[in-house]
């Protein structure tokens, strides 16, 4: 499912999602405010852990994907 939020960085985008869907942020971030181990977040197809993480800047055209990490391999 796809939703649109307004934010200037990834952290703020997650905050905006949490406002719309209360509790969303707790599912995504651990107690230290870091992305949970088993969640992958992509900014325009790039894994945010390879870049600026939650501080990554976002603008109007950017697409953020949130995908469970537990998949693949054997």
């Amino acid at each position: 499912m796809t939703v649109t939020v307004e934010a200037t960085d990834l952290g703020a985008a997650i905050d905006a999602l949490d406002t719309r869907y209360p509790g969303f942020k707790d599912r995504l971030l651990d107690q230290q405010g870091q992305l949970r181990q088993f969640v992958n977040v992509y900014l325009n197809d790039e894994d945010v852990r390879l870049g600026a993480g939650l501080a990554a800047k976002v603008s109007e055209k950017d697409e953020i994907s949130i995908v469970p990490a537990v998949a693949g391999g054997s």
């Binding site: 992509y42 197809d45 894994d47 994907s65 995908v67 469970p68 998949a71 693949g72 391999g73």
Partner: peptide, 23 residues
């Protein structure tokens, strides 16, 4: 690459009634 293939399949799950062996 594989990680991108895997991610696509994870996203496909939402809309397909398939058994993805490793998902």
């Amino acid at each position: 690459n594989y990680d991108e293939v895997n991610r696509l399949c994870s996203q496909l799950l939402e809309s397909t009634p398939w058994a993805f062996c490793n998902i």
